[in-house]
């Protein structure tokens, strides 16, 4: 058995079995002719839907929209999260003041803020951006806090011995030592921002974006469009995460390879 599995092309073939079976089952359901088959669009029409979306440019513009929404939210929430997390780790009074409040706010599922934000700001792009930024804020804040608070005392000792002032301590010890966790926080935040973008797009359904298209297609019973969009979401999400991971590795060259 192991000999079979060790050949890469054979592994690939085995891996394709399940998806192939799924597609066959799908096509069979689509052509079965009973009431439920309306939900199953024939495989051919999925290809057609793909071409349709590419031709009218909506697939690309959706991908760009969702991506830019996630990245904007990541930048806003991430920057704020790093600033707040680092500040709270350095100044104890701030920690005592803000910490419990943020902890309490964190308990509410972020998506639950949408109706509230909808009442406050209307159901426009603003509310969406706030939710996406919030979803990026918490992981970066927590990880930045842990990163700075967890800096080992022995490195701070070295700083004391060489007479480091507060600014030197921050620039040369705290920040670089905290960087791995800060980047971890940003990686998590990216994933959360991505999910939050899709979620708010589905829920509010305005503007453009992958989630919006999915929601619209659902009201029109266009399962073929939904499928194309879902696949695009998966691919785009994977690609962005992969690129981010590479970026992280290059920023942390000083770490031993195993980390």
């Amino acid at each position: 058995m192991n000999a079979v599995l060790s050949k890469p092309w054979l592994r690939l073939a085995i891996g394709l079995v399940a998806p192939a079976l799924l597609l066959i089952w799908w096509q069979w359901q689509a052509s079965s002719g009973d009431v439920r088959s309306i939900a199953f669009a024939p495989l051919g029409s999925i290809g057609g839907a793909f071409l349709e979306l590419v031709e009218n440019g909506s697939l690309v513009s959706d991908m760009v929209s969702t991506l830019s929404r996630s990245l904007t939210g990541l930048v806003i929430g991430g920057a704020l999260g790093i600033a707040v997390g680092v500040a709270m780790a350095i100044w104890r009074p701030l920690d005592r003041l803000l910490g419990p409040l943020l902890h309490a706010i964190r308990q509410v599922p972020l998506i639950g803020w949408l109706p509230l934000l909808g009442l406050w700001f209307g159901t426009g792009q603003g509310s969406e951006l706030i939710v996406v930024s919030l979803s990026a804020f918490f992981p970066t804040m927590l990880n930045s806090y842990e990163g700075v608070a967890g800096v080992e005392q022995r490195y701070l000792d070295v700083g004391r011995i060489y007479g480091f002032g507060a600014f030197q301590r921050f620039r040369l010890i705290l920040l670089p030592a905290a960087m791995p966790l800060i980047l971890t926080g940003l990686t998590q935040a990216l994933a959360f921002a991505w999910i939050a973008s899709i979620a708010t797009e589905i829920l509010l359904g305005i503007g453009s974006g992958l989630g919006v298209t999915m929601q619209l297609a659902q009201t029109q019973q266009r399962i073929d469009i939904i499928l194309v969009t879902v696949i695009a979401t998966a691919i785009l999400g994977f690609a962005v995460n992969y690129l981010f991971r590479q970026l992280r590795i290059s920023l942390l060259r000083w770490q031993p390879a195993s980390l």
């Binding site: 891996g15 399940a18 589905i202 979401t233």
Partner: peptide, 19 residues
């Protein structure tokens, strides 16, 4: 099974809602 699983895992669960 894991290729299919990993592929599905890339999709945020909420994106399955319309479907």
């Amino acid at each position: 099974l894991s290729p299919l699983f990993m592929a599905l895992w890339q999709v945020p669960v909420i994106a399955f809602v319309p479907m």
